[in-house]
């Protein structure tokens, strides 16, 4: 009884913390405490968090190296913009359409390719990512190489915040469910888990589809914040960027993915002033972090309630 109450209190506390964080930022934006530049970076940060956390489900927890995440982002972005901009639907329809389209793309790509292993899977996903880009480049309805411009800005802070929290919650809960344990077992030992009666392929596809859906969500938010989408934005270099975040944070750590996404966004921003050397510094940081912390910032650890409880207790 006591335990239950405590859990409930913790939950309430967390909700309050999240709500306060939301309100502070919302207030700061409304009052103008956060200038445009920071506003843009907070948006990029949230989008990167969604991308990194969702790819982490595929690359980190399921252990399937995917190099085509930007492709799903593109599918989501384009599908939603067709809904909102071309067909005049409300934003929520755009979001759902984007997620759905990306999820379907994930399913169609996942079912055949997830039979492949390791680098062969990597190259197949990379290939699909590129195919999506080339196809978009050649469809005139969506603007060809010029992409779609003049998209209405609908990605507001509430949408952004809610999407980020939902992404993290869904993926964390998925991992902690029985599905999640099956997914992790696939990573740890595919043959053993198959022998235990786990249908490895379907769990891999499940993780892949969920990851793709959230990548699509990120694409939707991106499109409706930056006014323009073009196929080039979603090339393989973008996919690499996301992989970098996941690995930097720690494969199989959602906390790590979040931290790395924040870190990379701010690094990019902070280096803006050093136009000539920014990419050199960026690449050096990448190499150095990997050499000294090859398992990523968090390894496979998570910051959980327990961690906080320990820190809290430690201080006492």
């Amino acid at each position: 009884m006591h335990e239950k109450k405590k859990t409930w209190l913790t939950f309430l506390f967390e909700v309050i913390v999240l709500a306060v964080l939301f309100t502070i930022v919302q207030y700061a934006i409304t009052v103008g405490l956060i200038n445009q530049s920071y506003h843009i970076n907070i948006t990029s940060m949230c989008i990167n968090i969604i991308l990194a956390v969702s790819l982490n489900l595929i690359n980190g927890f399921t252990g399937q190296l995917s190099l085509g995440h930007a492709g799903f982002m593109a599918v989501g972005a384009y599908a939603s913009v067709i809904m909102t901009n071309n067909l005049g639907m409300p934003f929520i329809v755009g979001i759902l359409a984007g997620c759905l389209a990306a999820g379907i793309a994930g399913f169609l790509i996942g079912v055949p390719t997830l039979r492949l292993k390791g680098d062969y899977l990597a190259i197949a996903t990379l290939g699909f990512g590129e195919i999506i880009r080339v196809v978009l480049q050649n469809i005139d309805y969506v603007g060809g190489p010029a992409g779609m411009v003049g998209i209405t800005r609908l990605t507001s802070w509430p949408w952004l915040y809610a999407s980020t929290i939902v992404t993290i919650l869904v993926i964390v809960n998925l991992i902690n469910s029985s599905y999640g344990r099956a997914i992790i077992s696939v990573r740890e030992d595919e043959i053993a888990s198959e022998l235990m009666g786990i249908n490895t392929t379907s769990y891999k596809v499940l993780a892949f589809v969920v990851g793709a859906m959230f990548a699509g969500l990120a694409g939707v938010l991106y499109a409706h914040f930056f006014y323009i989408i073009k196929p080039e934005t979603f090339g393989f270099l973008k996919s690499f960027d996301i992989v970098v975040m996941v690995v930097l944070g720690g494969l199989g750590s959602t906390t790590g993915a979040v931290i790395a996404a924040i870190f990379i966004t701010f690094l990019t921003f902070a280096l803006q002033k050093y136009a000539a050397v920014r990419m050199i510094i960026y690449s050096l940081i990448l190499i150095i972090v990997m050499i000294y912390r090859p398992q990523g910032v968090m390894g496979s650890k998570e910051l959980t309630r327990k961690t906080f409880a320990r820190i809290w207790g430690g201080k006492k």
Partner: peptide, 30 residues
């Protein structure tokens, strides 16, 4: 395009009177 927007916002904060660039149409749209 997204970085073009971010950079423009940062430049606006530095009180530029005008901006030259970017080069491609897409980046200008950003």
């Amino acid at each position: 395009a997204d970085e073009a927007m971010s950079v423009s916002a940062a430049l606006a904060g530095e009180n530029i009177v005008a901006q030259i660039g970017p080069l491609t149409s897409g980046d200008v749209q950003g």
